[in-house]
Amino acid sequence: MTLRVRVDLRLGSLHLDVDLDVEPGETVAILGPNGAGKTTLLRCIGGLAPIDAGRLALDDDVWDEPGAGIFVPPERRSVGFGFQDYVLFPHLSARENVAFGPRSRGVAKREARHRAEEWLGRVGLGDVAGAKPEALSGGQAQRVALARALATDPQVLLLDEPLAALDASTRGEVRRDLRAHLAAFPGVRILVTHDPIDAATLADRLVIVEDGRIVQTGTLAEVTGRPRSRYVAELVGVNLVQGVASGNDVALDGGGVLVVPSEERGAVFAVIRPQAVALHRTRPAGSPRNVWSGRVASVELLGDRVRVRVDGSPALVAEVTPAALHELALVEGAEIWVSLKATEVNVFAG
């Protein structure tokens, strides 16, 4: 079962021209700036925006092929759609929201209700089944929306900015839960986000969409290591390392230890902006808590900035000015010192 997406669609000033295959069991994150066509692409797959040309099919089941005169309306596609801001029906309780899909697909009232309660229990909301959406917190609404999208047992799950509406305090926890639910869903999983952290922590593969076209695709390491445009570099060009925290120290999975600003425990992600990584010819004196030495692996010019990949423990990407490049004599293979303030490390519970 493969979702094959060949989409050509003009909508206002947007020209969406995308060719993408997604396998079941794989989570694909579509990243891109506002207006890039991410949501429109999702709407095409869900049947909310008919395509102009191309072919959209789940295996041999063609959903949209204008050339052959085929268009399967959204209500007959096996798709679970999670909308940005969730779009829960405000006049229905959480339970009725989740039961809406099964009810609409012909499941008897009691059975639909039962199924809804089962799903709400699965996302940890069994006790608020009777609450109206206005009474739910952002995190709860997100989980109701997820349960609603999954309650029809779709083969394809589409999530549009599933975490964008959440504040920072609940985001980490909801993200972790979402990751578990995504892992438990056996079908095709596509999510749209503008947040590289969400993409990095939730997806197996990133698809960068810019101006209606795919500019790059690959794993996080592939995309981060070799961004193909200034925009991609800014969007996903962050350093992301995993490790196990104990107090202020994080023992990194790939070797090395990072001192972080807050006390943590257990598996964590640490995110470091390349601009925060400082490079020195000699061991720096003074306050930085994280200092280690490495070897320059690659130097890449991107407009007025230079991305320098430094192998070491950990291996990171630093971004410096062309002047610094010259001053530090940064060439491939050069020995170099790396420093990083503890306060520049953002830690997320994994």
Binding site: F81, P90, S104
Partner: peptide, 26 residues
């Protein structure tokens, strides 16, 4: 907001169901 109608159809609702269960009550 039209997205409520979008949400309803992606959940499998017919046009009549959307009208009866989403548009009318809202």
């Amino acid at each position: 907001d039209r997205r409520y109608e979008d949400a309803a159809v992606t959940l499998g609702a017919s046009r009549w169901t959307v009208f009866r269960r989403v548009i009318l009550p809202m």
